[in-house]
């Protein structure tokens, strides 16, 4: 038996909790209605959440990560996403070797 009971309980609990947060977002607008201020707030969610995800790691990651992030921003302004990612990862690998 390779599925142990407490592990199964934890997995099912985490799965339901995660799906619940995703479903809650789906139902939220039906509950609170919509207006212009709320629309502006929701339009800001992608930028706000993505920035919050990466900001601490860029600041705490040391000079190599911080400089690579700046290089990636410049690349992102001119280039499509895939090229941006390639340049970003290449620059962080080179910079980490330089700063190691």
């Amino acid at each position: 038996m390779s599925v142990e009971m407490s592990n199964l309980l934890a997995i099912v609990g985490m799965a339901l909790a995660t799906w619940a947060t995703r479903l809650a977002g789906l139902g939220l607008l039906g509950l609170v209605g919509r207006n212009r201020v709320l629309e502006s707030a929701l339009d800001a969610v992608p930028v706000a959440v993505l920035t919050a995800v990466i900001a601490p790691s860029i600041v705490n990651g040391g000079p190599a990560t911080t400089i690579a992030a700046a290089v990636t921003v410049i690349a992102a302004i001119r280039l499509p996403l895939l090229a941006t990612v390639v340049i970003g990862v290449a620059s962080v690998v080179v910079l980490r070797m330089l700063f190691a």
């Binding site: 934890a10 609990g13 339901l16 947060t21 977002g25 939220l28």
Partner: peptide, 24 residues
């Protein structure tokens, strides 16, 4: 054994951002 209640609560807090994301 797995602390399932604690792990469930942890998943819930980490994933609360999905409420904003899903609403958008």
């Amino acid at each position: 054994p797995a602390p399932w209640a604690f792990l469930t609560l942890t998943a819930l807090t980490i994933n609360l951002r999905h409420v904003m994301m899903g609403a958008s």
